[in-house]
Simulated scan of single mutants.
Amino acid sequence: MKKVIIYFSILCLALVSLVGCKSGKESTTFVSSGVVATSIKESGTCNVSVEPKIELLQVVQYLAGDQSIKREKLSYDYESYSEDIKVYFSKYDKEPVVNLYKKMMMNGFSFSTPPSVMLYVDDNLNRIQGLDIPNEYNSDAGNEENIIKFYKLLAEFRKKTKFDEFYIQHKAYYTGLVSKVKEKLDKSGCIDKIIKYYGYKQNSYNFIIESLSVGGYAARVPSQNGKFDLYDFMVIPNNDEEFFQMIVHEFGHSYVNPLTEKNINEINRYDNLFTPIKQAMANQQYGQWQYCVNEHIVRSVAYRNLYFYFGKNASEYYINLDTSKNFIYINAITEKLKEYENNRDKYTTFDDFYPKLIEVFKELSEKQKG
């Protein structure tokens, strides 16, 4: 009799582990209370996925009132997903993980930082060996201890709320989002265009859908081959031009930001350019000069690519829009990028050309000083 029970239990576990699985599109990642949540994924030049740990994070952000999370007017699903979150999870808005998130949020733990720190844990929220959490993320959270505590409380929240069951109930929704993004990516060919423009390929490109996000965020994690795994956490714009420029923009950060950091001493010599736009930049979450520099450059690259693949009107629309938001150096940078585009035999990669962009800031700085 005991053997029969054991065999029956094993059979049940096996069946549970197969719930909702589709070959080539899903992988088992999350386990909670005997129910299996899965990562919905389509692979390719750019991997596209909905990740349980990111959806779990968004639920906590929703409950904490994070301004980087939408509660209505989603691009897809006509708001029912956010409404389902409200109905299912609202009674858990006083949980320890929500309170801790609110505390960290007051310190600056919002926008790109929360999804980025989720790259340093596995799918069961255990720390990944050999990956150190960057100091900038620790600073945004207050300290590293807060992030470690957050992981622990998030795991407890997942189990208490039976998050995996909620996730599985919405697998059709997630699968639809993944298919839509993959179709858009394949149609635009934007990853190949990014690789061509910057002149070299990174280890991997990963689009993780955040349907509740107000925008997009870039992150990168070192891989074993000396390159990086690039991540774009992003909402899905309906407009093809907006989708294209956001992809080029977010993945562009992983190319541009390290170059700015490498040349930061030289860049800081021209920080007088920040003075007239400092408040406007801070209001848009770019409160430091180097962040402002990065934004000007990645936006300019995105708009040059828009020019090539969507035409002059599309490019000028975004340039004018950003200029109205006080990105006042974009015209000078986009003009300089033409030199890069016309001399790729001399500038094999964007890294080779970056010093020429520094010259733009130098010239503008000297002109401002009179």
Results as ranks from 00 to 15, higher is better:
159 K>C: 05
191 I>S: 14
178 V>T: 03
129 Q>N: 08
80 S>D: 13
77 D>P: 03
149 K>I: 12
188 S>I: 01
119 L>A: 01
89 F>H: 06
114 P>I: 03
88 Y>N: 12
77 D>A: 15
166 F>D: 09
168 I>K: 09
141 A>Y: 01
173 Y>C: 04
100 L>Y: 06
193 K>A: 12
123 D>M: 05
93 D>E: 14
134 P>N: 06
190 C>V: 15
80 S>H: 10
78 Y>K: 13
132 D>Q: 03
120 Y>W: 04
180 K>W: 01
81 Y>C: 13
152 K>D: 15
127 R>G: 02
105 M>D: 11
175 T>F: 01
97 V>L: 09
184 K>G: 06
149 K>F: 02
129 Q>I: 05
78 Y>D: 15
176 G>R: 03
166 F>W: 05
169 Q>Y: 02
121 V>C: 10
190 C>R: 00
117 V>D: 00
177 L>S: 05
141 A>I: 03
161 T>Y: 06
101 Y>E: 07
127 R>Q: 08
150 F>Q: 08
166 F>C: 07
126 N>R: 10
165 E>V: 12
136 E>A: 04
185 L>G: 14
151 Y>F: 15
184 K>E: 10
84 D>C: 04
110 S>N: 14
137 Y>Q: 06
92 Y>D: 11
154 L>R: 00
122 D>F: 01
108 G>L: 10
188 S>V: 03
89 F>G: 09
169 Q>M: 05
110 S>C: 11
113 T>N: 09
189 G>E: 09
117 V>S: 00
156 E>C: 12
94 K>H: 07
193 K>R: 15
135 N>P: 03
180 K>Y: 05
135 N>T: 07
91 K>P: 02
123 D>W: 02
144 E>Q: 11
126 N>V: 04
146 N>Q: 10
104 M>K: 04
181 V>M: 04
131 L>W: 10
137 Y>M: 09
116 S>K: 00
187 K>Y: 13
146 N>G: 07
100 L>K: 04
139 S>H: 01
90 S>L: 07
169 Q>A: 09
94 K>W: 01
155 A>I: 03
129 Q>T: 10
191 I>C: 11
80 S>K: 09
176 G>Q: 07
121 V>K: 00
164 D>C: 06
154 L>V: 05
169 Q>L: 04
124 N>K: 04
130 G>D: 01
81 Y>S: 11
147 I>G: 02
127 R>V: 12
127 R>I: 07
182 K>N: 08
102 K>C: 12
182 K>L: 04
